[in-house]
Amino acid sequence: MKSVEEITAAIEAAVPGAGVTVIPNGSSSGQHSLLLDPRTAMDVARFLRDDAELALDFLSNVTGVDYLDKEVTEKVKVLRPVTKTVEGVEQTVQETVEELRKHTEPGYLETVYHLYSMAEKHGPVVLRMRTANRTDKVELPSFTPIWRSAEFQEREVFDLFGIVFTGHPDLRRILMWEEFKDHPMRRDYVEPDDFEYEPTAHDDVLARAKKHHARVAEYQAAGEGQ
């Protein structure tokens, strides 16, 4: 089994400009992962499957991870005009002042793929892809045309995380029902009070009765005025 660096070099040689970054893993499992660029990911994936030495023909696990927007506070040194009293005379002097600045690092959604080789019996090779943000740019290429095992698992990631896989042949919700709106595996998901609330005929009758009472009250009020 090749090391992550060797696999990266092989990918860069086969797909020029692939833009693969190694993400180190701090745990004792030592499963480092490769961050792919979504634009070249399909070519890289096809290379990984068809290369005779790697022969990663078995895509075992597909899953999503959600990272929220992070608020980072850092100290910045800034040049500032400061009013000072020097020897009895008031002056304005340029001085460097330390200041706390806050900015938000945008969150992202991530897909993780675990690849093994059934022909060579080695693995795993871990691939990752990240979306640009968590709200509107959530498209990633689908690996289903290359590995069929991604079909249901990518549907699950779409359902629970809301990542849209372009090129997936049948992208529908899989575990939640079709009419469901949110994505329950996101970190900021809030449960509705009533999962199965549906407006019923009873609600219509109630609404009509309310309207009727309001009209009666209006009529009576008008009658008293005369």
Binding site: S27, S29, Q31, S60, H114, P124
Partner: peptide
């Protein structure tokens, strides 16, 4: 409290490959 990191562990369950993927 495990150190920050991730793991994919799998075994041959009677029905096939059963794996757990954890991020700490």
């Amino acid at each position: 409290r495990p150190k920050p990191g991730e793991v994919y562990g799998r075994i041959e369950a009677p029905k096939g490959e059963l794996g757990f993927y954890l991020i700490s």
